[in-house]
Write a protein that binds this DNA or RNA. Sequence first.
DNA 1: AGGCGAGTACTTGCAGACGAGTATACGGGG
DNA 2: CCCCGTATACTCGTCTGCAAGTACTCGCCT
Lengths: 214, 214
Amino acid sequence: MAKRRKVGNLLALAVLSTVAQRPMHPYEVMSLLRARDKDADMEIKLGSLYTVMRNLARHGFVEVAGTTREGARPERTVYRITEAGRAEMVDWVRELVSTPQPEPRRFRAGLSVLAAVGPEEGAALLRQRLELLERECGARRESLARDVLAVPRLFLVEDEYELAAHEAEAAWVRSLLDELTSGTFPGLAEWRRWKATGEMSPELAELAERGHEE
Amino acid sequence: MAKRRKVGNLLALAVLSTVAQRPMHPYEVMSLLRARDKDADMEIKLGSLYTVMRNLARHGFVEVAGTTREGARPERTVYRITEAGRAEMVDWVRELVSTPQPEPRRFRAGLSVLAAVGPEEGAALLRQRLELLERECGARRESLARDVLAVPRLFLVEDEYELAAHEAEAAWVRSLLDELTSGTFPGLAEWRRWKATGEMSPELAELAERGHEE
DNA sequence: AGGCGAGTACTTGCAGACGAGTATACGGGG
DNA sequence: CCCCGTATACTCGTCTGCAAGTACTCGCCT
């Protein structure tokens, strides 16, 4: 697991999940990402976005759908997601959600496209994560208990912090999981239907379009 | 604040704090970092370490202390930290500890060299962080409350996660701060003395040497 | 005595990230 | 009506990170 992705940049995941809506040109992707303040945490650099899009194309995850030009504006290259691209996206989400990584941003990125898998699978992935997380917390707790006998706490604060962060994450995952399995998470039925039929309710579709801050 | 560092890689901070002990060649730095399993979270690549060391030298944060050669082994270049290097390190720690960043690893890295500032300043930095953190949590909580009226929760899980993570961090910082200000944090006197005189107790020095897992 | 696995120490080459630059359109204030 | 700021849309060049490679040594097994 954690196999090396052809395009490893997390920005690529955001891009994939955005062009999944409909064919777009890179700049448009950026605007959409900005609109749903995705760019706040995921520092988005325009230069990188063009590189990433080209790389995605190189590996067959997206393909050129054509080029358009309005007036004397620069030519825009419109990209479309491929089947391989969709598969990559889903597979990536699976990994990001199910497997804890030292880099917490990866989890965040995974969560932000959680909708790409169904609620049942989502719950399963979270369950797996929780288990790994608990195992890791246990190990860290033990090693910390051992170290504290030999090393002043001053040199262990970072480990204490890390442990606290992991425990907090575990608690959060547990509570989300509860909502998912008990069925109290709102919108479960819609989510499932959307997954099955590929159809979104009109309001939902509109939301996706304008990206919830108008 | 958050000014652009001449050498931005976090690995550079670890390197600085290691050569601060005594002059070393890059490979030795690596071994020490490995010994204190710093490398677990901070993925250390040898190649990067050499690059980083060269960059630190280029900007005057370290300087070549000489080269040695044992038998037919490759030549080793020994580096020594400069005054500018020490200043950069302390300044960097200040920033990392006091200012919350989207990337949590930065805080961890800052904590791991917290000893470079005194306990009083450490507490002040943490206090500042806590304040900023609380402000940010408030803002996030509000914007989440607003969004939840318009957007299905499915598309807000990442924001909920982020908020939870920040709140957990705030709680942890608060508890550390309490220990620091109430004086219940163990080893405070030693820490202060070390800061003032630059002297470590012998056991401490030895610990730093072998890096607490023998 | 020979071979191989693990450790030491460093270099190179290339892919990827991104700051800075380019060029045009459009609306509004002076 | 002209200039400026801002938005659209993309490119280029540089700098950096790092996987892979190099080269030698030591000790163990056989």
